[in-house]
Design a protein around this nucleic acid. Structure first.
Lengths: 138, 138
DNA sequence: ATAATTGCAAAAGCTTTGCATGGCC
DNA sequence: GGCCATGCAAAGCTTTTGCAATTAT
C-alpha cells in the first residue's frame, strides 16, 4: 500500500488527504498485528513527533466510519484496528495477544445454514462472528 | 438463588461471606441482563448506600477468578457479568444493548467437527465463541 | 475563501490501587 | 486474634472533547 493508493482511497471516500492520515494508514499496514491506537501513535512519532493523540483517535474513528478499517474489541477492552475488510473471523492468542485473521467461506456457509435451520425466536441476525481463543504455535 | 445458596457457594470456594458479597451476587441475578459494574453498584446502593465502587470491582474480580461468574466483553469495551456458567454463546442486540444467552450443543458439535476437519496450522484451539449481533424483536 | 483537520490540553469514563479501618472465622 | 475484606480517595489508562490555529481543496 503506497502513498498513491492511500491518497486514492481517501479521495474516493471524500476525505481530505493529510500527512497525518497517510501516516496512520501506513502505520496500520506496517505494524500488521491489529495494532492499538497506542501502537500506532508510538510508531508514527518516530517520524512525525508532533502528531497528537487526539488526532489519531479522530482519524481512526473516521476511517472506521468510512469502512477503511474495522475496529476489533479485545479481552481487556482495548480497541485494535484491522485493515482486512472482507468478512472474516479472529484467532486470539492468549499468550502473546496476537490476533490472526481467519477467512473461510465454508465456515460462513455452515453457520448460515445452521441458523437458517434453527430459527432463533425474537432475534433478527445481522452478523455472525467467531472468536477462537488459543495458543499460536511456532 | 436465596441467601443460603449464595452463602454455600462462597464457602465452597473458600471465600468469606460478607453482606457486600451477598448483595452483589443477588444483584446480578435480579438485574438479569448481564449487568455492568455500574448497574450493580446503582442497584445495591438503594439498600446499602455505603457500598463502595472499589469493593464491587474487587468482589466481581474475585467471583470471576473463582468461577462464580463470567466476564463478558462488549462492543464499547465496558465489561458485563454473566451468572450462566455452562458453555454458551451470546446474541447482542445493537439497538437495546441487551445480551441474550444462546446455548446449543448441536452448534458446539458442528463447530468442533468443522475445526477437527480443518486443522488450523500453528494454532492450538482452547475455546470457540460465537458472537451474533442483530436486533431483538418483540 | 472556507470548510475541514490538527494539536493541545483538559476532562471524561471505567477500572485499579493503597492503606487504614472494620468484620469474619 | 489474626487475617481478610471493605471504604475511601487518589490515580491509572484509554478515549473523547473543545477550541484556536492551521491546512487542504
Amino acid at each position: 500500500m503506497n502513498t498513491k493508493e492511500i491518497t486514492d482511497k481517501l479521495t474516493e471516500k471524500g476525505l481530505r488527504v493529510t500527512p497525518q492520515r497517510i501516516a496512520i494508514f501506513e502505520a496500520i499496514f506496517k505494524l500488521d498485528n491489529h495494532p492499538t491506537a497506542e501502537n500506532i501513535i508510538e510508531y508514527i512519532k518516530r517520524k512525525h513527533p508532533n502528531i497528537s493523540t487526539g488526532t489519531v483517535y479522530k482519524v481512526l474513528d473516521s476511517f472506521v466510519e468510512n469502512h477503511l478499517l474495522k475496529k476489533v474489541k479485545t479481552e481487556n477492552g482495548i480497541m485494535r484496528y484491522d485493515p482486512l475488510l472482507s468478512k472474516h473471523h479472529h484467532l486470539y492468542c492468549i499468550e502473546t495477544n496476537k490476533i490472526v485473521d481467519y477467512e473461510d467461506s465454508e465456515l460462513d456457509e455452515l453457520l448460515l445454514n445452521y441458523f437458517k435451520k434453527k430459527k432463533i425466536k425474537n432475534f433478527k441476525i445481522q452478523d455472525i462472528n467467531l472468536q477462537v481463543t488459543g495458543i499460536v504455535k511456532n
